[in-house]
Simulated scan of single mutants.
Amino acid sequence: MVDWVAVVLAKKELTYGVDSVPTVGANGILTRNYSAKPVDLDRIERNLDQRVFGALASVPSNERRTTSYEVEIAGSGEAGTAPGWMELLEACGLAAPVLTADTDAVQQFALPGVDATSISQYDYMSDQRRKAVGMVGSFTMDFTAGAYPFIGFNWLGMIPAATPFDKSAPGAVDLTRWLQPVEVNTDNSDFLLDGYAPALRSWRADAGVTTAMRNLVGKRYVRRGNHSFTSTAVIEAPDIATKNYIQSLRAGSLVNWALDHGTVAGNILGLASEKVQITDITESNEDDTLMWTLAMTHTVEGGTADLVITAR
């Protein structure tokens, strides 16, 4: 019997697909809702004509690893030092954070043509170790009132040739770089859409990063391609005379958007987009209050960044 005790280590690779050897002392990830397949693969079917009924054996092909988990969103504890989750976001298409000492760490999606970042990941189920290299992924974000904010990661990577599965207990894992987040609420959080601050129930985003296993003759790797950052905000519907989001929807307007969270230096996060387009409004009832779910696309119109993350 193997106990369900999950430990995840992840480290940025210097060379794509070359094991960066994450360690328990420096690369532990404080996860929740961990899920994985030991091996994910395709099967080659032969589809031969035969003189009896029944299934033929298939052949396994294109081995890979898929994992997913969530991490809480909090700062590093020191302004100007990047939180641990920013390294994970690099493997989802964001550039390395730009650090300003004692001030902030700023991160946004990398431009096309920039060498893709990847991670090596060791994940343990009790004392059973599984390895993956060349891992890239996509992510979601969730800021819901009355809860801690978090990022959800979905990873795709290759299985290395050397000891991909073995018996090796991780030992004590240092997780001190993962601070406790603060609750999403009126005291800690501010939300602005087109210069107006609606009452916010939740904001959820999907980076929409495309990933695919490329299995060719002479080359095998995980391709990370384009992304499309979209989000939904559930708000109390404002008086139309105060803020007319219906008109913004009808006109296809591009508006600014910002979400700030946290109050203490070293644990403050800012998210911002200059040109967001409201693409749909759905109405619902909550406690006899009219609620709107606004669907939004964070655009790169005019060369602006679709997402800027600032940890300060």
Rank of each mutant, 00 (worst) to 15 (best):
D127E: 13
T293A: 05
T279M: 08
T297N: 00
V52T: 15
V106G: 08
R46S: 09
E183D: 11
S126I: 09
L294D: 06
M135E: 07
A161V: 15
T293R: 01
E72A: 13
S189P: 04
L48M: 11
I268C: 13
W257V: 00
T304C: 03
V59D: 12
A26N: 09
W203G: 00
T144Q: 06
T117G: 08
A95V: 10
D166V: 15
G28P: 05
D104N: 10
F143M: 04
E283P: 06
G146S: 07
T163W: 04
I309S: 13
R43W: 10
T31A: 02
T282R: 03
A57M: 12
A172E: 09
I278W: 07
W203C: 03
R65V: 03
K12E: 15
R204I: 14
E45D: 04
R204N: 11
N256D: 12
E301Q: 00
A305E: 12
V209N: 01
Y69N: 10
A207S: 14
L99A: 11
D123P: 03
G303K: 01
T103H: 08
A95G: 14
V71G: 04
R201P: 09
W85K: 05
V24A: 09
L193G: 02
E45R: 07
E301F: 00
A82H: 09
T297I: 06
G17P: 15
A6T: 05
T176G: 02
K219V: 00
V222P: 06
G302C: 05
V18R: 14
G208R: 02
L56H: 01
T15I: 14
E78K: 13
D49M: 10
G152P: 12
A36G: 10
R220D: 15
